[in-house]
């Protein structure tokens, strides 16, 4: 039996997916969720093989929810997002259904999933790692134990690379996020955040002063008292953004 979770904030949209699924008796709906939080819980609880996921949902978007799951299942997006926006992640999702869709289109997507079940899960991971998803770039969603935290970007002090993770520092401490530095460099608003070092991205509004450090290095002192290394290259970028 293949376990399926449907995550969509509209009851009717969920019931449509359920109705279309009747032609695939090997699929079993183990949970239906109206938002990303419920979706996460259901995924942890049931460990489904496939999820149908809407993008625009209460509190956190479908993308943000996916980012928070350690072992994401295969995903078929069902959304009214336009085709152009969807091309960005076309290559990695199993498939996407543009609302409104018919049985035929739905069958095609499910068959594609059934044909390559394992490849699909790897594809979801790739989707999350490599692709610049069309999410809002004014917040970062992180997981703290079982709690979900939404951090508006202006509350981020700085980011530090830590192996496969990035530490997102705020006034409450740091949160780990399974993304790369270059992802954040392109994701965060460029007028506010500067990659000042290979391992650091700093929020320029948090900088109180920049001190010289050793021969030709610099160090930024933040309002919180934290000190951040600045590379030669990064110093040039900082000067440009700060208009020095």
């Amino acid at each position: 039996m293949t376990k399926v979770v449907i995550i969509d904030d509209e009851f009717l949209a969920r019931s449509l997916v359920k109705e279309y699924m009747k032609s695939f008796p090997q699929l079993e709906v183990v949970a239906e969720c109206g938002d990303g939080f419920e979706g996460m819980k259901a995924i942890q609880e049931h460990n489904p093989d496939l999820i149908f996921l809407d993008i625009q949902m209460p509190k956190i978007s479908g993308f943000e929810m996916l980012e928070l799951i350690d072992e994401p299942p295969a995903v078929i997006f069902a959304t009214a997002f336009d085709e152009y926006a969807i091309k960005a992640f076309d290559a990695h999702a199993v498939d996407y259904l543009l609302k409104p869709f018919d049985q035929e289109r739905f069958d095609k997507a499910v068959k594609k999933f059934l044909a390559q079940q394992h490849a699909n899960i790897d594809a979801t991971k790739e989707l999350l790692n490599d692709t610049q998803l069309p999410t809002t770039n004014n917040r970062i969603v992180v997981k703290n134990g079982s709690k979900i935290k939404i951090i508006p970007v202006q509350e981020v002090h700085y980011l530090e690379a830590a192996d496969d993770f990035v530490k997102v520092f705020t006034k409450e401490g740091y949160y780990l996020k399974n993304k790369t530095m270059s992802f954040f460099e392109s994701f965060l608003p460029a007028e506010m955040f500067v990659r000042c070092h290979r391992s650091y991205i700093v929020n320029i509004q948090e900088i109180t002063r920049i001190d010289p450090y050793e021969k030709d290095g610099h160090v930024a002192v933040l309002k919180s008292g934290a000190k951040i290394n600045i590379s030669r290259n990064g110093y040039g970028k900082l000067r440009e953004v700060l208009g020095l």
Binding site: E10, L12, A13, S15, L16, A80, L98, P100
Partner: peptide, 18 residues
């Protein structure tokens, strides 16, 4: 308009059966 329109059409699609 389009987002609203497509979501509404999707809802109608579901309602036709129910």
């Amino acid at each position: 308009q389009p987002h609203f329109l497509f979501n509404s059409l999707n809802s109608i699609n579901a309602l036709i059966a129910i």
